[in-house]
């Protein structure tokens, strides 16, 4: 990695602690440990879409300034929503010098943001800087036979201008899954919305949207579903809890963060895994058994 600062976001310090723990362990193995940005603030989680609303860009720009202050030229996020918000804000604010000037003038207690701090999602770092071949080389417990559904959701891919892959036909998660010796299972709803923040006031609607995603993944034959978004995780797991009682006994789907999958393959700290996932891991051949 270049001089990169890791931006955790609020969820990674709370509900999504397993995501951070597994990512830290995985990046340690890959020789590029995560270094947390100092004094970061919540990015706002959703990008403000109105042209005149600079107030809701402040949080993102403040984080870009924090990166600038510590000499980092990149911010790396794990959370898809942080990635989307920070990157879109960066593009919006750097597009027009008048916006940048207004925001800098307002935040007169901070150094001016000069522009140029890049925002990446961890998956991009793994693909473009680490390389999936290097990841494959670090696998000590190949996930052979594990059928993994790559769930992208919305904010990693859209809008196209900032997305980490082609919005309608993404492959980055499949390639990541393959690098861990697992089998990617593509499914129809892999880039559809889980219902997101509507969980606050329309939980039925969210459960319905999440239900379609889980059904679609299970019908495609997945044992595991990986995501990179703490809110998708919350909604999908909530939905899965409701769904499970109606499932046949042996039909289970383990919903985990993508770095947890890598941590299993590297045999490092995975964070807490669902019971069904722990069972799947037990069934995997160890590296010893694979040696001819």
């Amino acid at each position: 990695m270049n001089n990169a600062a890791y931006f955790p976001g609020c969820s990674l310090k709370a509900e999504a602690g397993d995501y951070e723990r597994s990512a830290a362990a995985v990046m340690e193995v890959l020789g590029q440990p995560l270094e947390e940005l100092e004094r970061w603030t919540c990015c706002g989680t959703v990008y403000s879409l109105t042209d005149d609303d600079l107030m809701h860009q402040l949080a993102s720009v403040r984080n870009l300034i924090r990166a600038q202050e510590c000499g980092a030229d990149e911010i790396v996020t794990l959370c898809s929503m942080c990635f989307n918000t920070l990157k879109r804000s960066k593009v919006f604010i750097e597009q027009d010098s008048a916006r940048l000037e207004t925001v800098n003038a307002f935040m007169d207690e901070e150094q001016d943001y000069e522009g140029g701090v890049e925002v990446f999602h961890l998956l991009e770092i793994l693909r473009d800087q680490v390389g999936f071949e290097s990841i494959e080389g670090k696998v000590t417990r190949p996930l052979s036979g594990l059928r993994v559904a790559p769930y992208y959701g919305c904010t990693l891919l859209r809008p196209r201008e900032i997305g980490i892959d082609e919005p309608d036909t993404p492959t980055i998660l499949q390639d990541f899954i393959r690098a861990l010796w697992a089998t990617p299972v593509e499914f129809a709803f892999q880039a559809e919305c889980c219902g997101t923040y509507q969980i606050v006031d329309s939980p039925e609607m969210v459960l319905e949207k999440s239900h379609r995603i889980l059904n679609s993944a299970m019908r495609a034959g997945a044992d595991v579903l990986v995501t990179s978004c703490p809110l998708c995780m919350h909604n999908l797991r909530l939905c899965y809890e409701e769904l499970r009682s109606s499932l046949p006994e042996k039909r289970e789907l383990s919903i985990i963060y993508l770095t947890q999958l890598a941590a299993i393959a590297f045999e490092v700290e995975t964070g807490e895994l669902p019971t069904s996932m722990a069972k799947l891991v037990e069934g995997l051949p160890t590296s010893m058994e694979l040696v001819p």
Binding site: K13, A14, L58
Partner: peptide
């Protein structure tokens, strides 16, 4: 919180108010 930092600027005690709101938000 939108991280505007107006609270910090209003504090007669020179407390980093926005920073503690952010800390509270992440638990």
């Amino acid at each position: 919180c939108v991280s505007c930092n107006t609270c910090t600027k209003a504090c007669p005690q020179d407390i980093e108010v926005m920073d503690y709101i952010q800390a509270a938000l992440r638990g």
